[in-house]
Simulated scan of single mutants.
Amino acid sequence: MKLLAFESSSDLLTVAISLDGRILEREGARGASHSELALPLATALLEEAGVTLSGLEGIAFGAGPGAFTGLRLACSVAQGLAVGIGLPVIGIGSLEALALGAGDGLVYACTDARMNEAYCAAYKVSGNSVETVIAPVVSALDKVPIPPGQGWLGCGSGFAAYGDALTERLGTTLRGMDGGARARASMVLRLAAPLFARGEGIDAALAVPRYVRDKVAQTTAERLAAGGKA
Rank of each mutant, 00 (worst) to 15 (best):
L3K: 14
S8D: 04
S9R: 08
L12G: 11
L13C: 01
T14L: 01
A16F: 02
L19H: 12
R26M: 03
G31S: 04
G31R: 05
E36C: 05
L37W: 01
L39N: 08
L41S: 01
T43Q: 13
T43F: 11
E47F: 01
E48Q: 14
V51I: 15
G55H: 08
E57M: 06
G58V: 09
F68L: 05
T69A: 06
S76E: 07
V77R: 03
V77S: 09
A82H: 09
G86N: 13
L87C: 15
P88R: 02
V89T: 12
G91H: 03
I92A: 04
L100T: 06
G101T: 01
G105W: 10
L106N: 02
A113K: 14
M115D: 12
N116L: 14
E117P: 08
E117G: 06
G127S: 09
N128R: 11
I134G: 00
K143Y: 04
K143L: 11
P145T: 10
P145H: 07
G149C: 04
Q150I: 09
C155Q: 11
A160V: 03
A161P: 05
L166Y: 10
L166S: 07
R169M: 02
L170I: 09
L170Q: 10
G176R: 03
M177T: 15
M177C: 13
R182H: 12
R182N: 13
A185S: 11
V188L: 08
G201Y: 05
D203P: 07
A204N: 06
A205P: 06
A207I: 00
R210F: 10
V212A: 07
V216A: 14
A217N: 10
T220I: 15
A221R: 06
R223I: 01
A225V: 07
G227V: 00
G227C: 00
G228E: 13
G228H: 11
A230V: 05
